[in-house]
């Protein structure tokens, strides 16, 4: 079990750095393989490559009428977690090539235009895409996922410049400390990141997609809404689990929200 601190001040960063060293020792003891700086560098580049490819796929979602749906972009992120990394990277490259071709030919994943929505909150691991599906079936275009199966997973890269082991471990620890999970307090960078993502992806509205009993994200939604109000971005909160029983309730709410967003004239885009 890795101890993830709850703050990001200097003593917390030191604690986390020690935990990363402890993890290194743990995997070395497990396999009997001593990690060399060369090998670590190679793997830092490999995982960074995966993150960069996922970033590129998400770049296409910034366009008007994106060539990939939010539902499918989520599937890519879900698959990134458990398939062979090299094969995954190759398949992402193929997808990027096809998406570029679709853009050139003016092919959209959506049959009609709809409000551009940023999803914010908890992860949707492989098998669960309920809220994404219902939201897009309600006419929304999900253009970004601010979640652990989205931006939080691939937004930040590990700095590749350090050559020595300690420098590399520090760079890795720093990268993982940038993750803006609601388990941190304060977590102002998450609010800033969301406001920035809303602008970057030209979102017209935000849906907080929160798994039941994830109190951190649930509580934090209010602080985010207050920041969104300032830039006139409407939001709604959906708290749900993996069951099908609330699909129709979610549908009624997402359809209404899509209308609210569509009539929010002052919103950008």
């Amino acid at each position: 079990m890795l101890e993830v601190p709850q703050r990001k001040s200097e003593p917390d960063q030191e604690l986390w750095l020690k935990e990363v060293y402890r993890f290194k020792e743990m995997v070395e003891n497990l396999s009997g393989v001593t990690i060399t700086p060369e090998k670590l560098k190679e793997k830092v580049k490999l995982v960074n490559k995966k993150r960069t490819l996922m970033q590129k796929i998400n770049e296409f979602r910034k366009l008007d009428n994106p060539p990939i749906s939010g539902l499918d972009a989520l599937l890519v992120a879900q698959v990134s977690l458990n398939q062979d990394i090299e094969v995954f990277n190759t398949k992402c490259e193929e997808l990027i090539e096809e998406l570029q071709q679709r853009v050139n030919e003016g092919i959209s994943a959506y049959e009609k235009s709809g409000p551009r929505i940023l999803f914010a909150g908890t992860p949707s691991p492989l098998g669960n895409a309920k809220v994404h599906y219902v939201a897009e079936a309600s006419g929304m275009q999900i253009v970004a996922d601010e979640s652990c199966t989205g931006l939080r997973y691939f937004r930040d890269l590990v700095d590749e410049t350090p050559e020595d082991m300690d420098g590399m471990i520090r760079a890795i620890a720093d990268r993982y400390m940038k993750i803006d999970c609601s388990c941190f307090s304060p977590n102002t960078e998450r609010i800033e990141n969301i406001v920035e993502a809303v602008k970057e992806y030209r979102a017209d509205g935000v849906v907080h997609n929160i798994l039941q009993f994830c109190h951190g994200f649930n509580v934090e939604a209010k602080a985010i809404d207050m920041a969104l109000e300032k830039i006139n971005i409407p939001s709604m909160k959906i708290i749900s689990d993996y069951s099908d029983e609330d699909i129709e309730q979610i549908r009624v709410r997402t359809e209404s929200f899509a209308e609210i967003v569509a009539t929010n004239e002052a919103a950008p885009s």
Binding site: L2, V4, V20, F23, K24, V27, E28, L30, S31, V33, T34, I35, T36, K39, L40, E42, K43, V44, L46, V47, L81, N82, I85, P123, P125, C148, R152, Y153, V158, I169, I172, A173, Y176, I179, C181
Partner: peptide, 18 residues
């Protein structure tokens, strides 16, 4: 969770499986 540093696991020939 996404806090496990995959690159370190791979560097020790250990496959991380979320």
């Amino acid at each position: 969770c996404i806090y496990v540093p995959d690159e370190i696991a791979y560097a020790a020939d250990v496959l991380p499986i979320p």
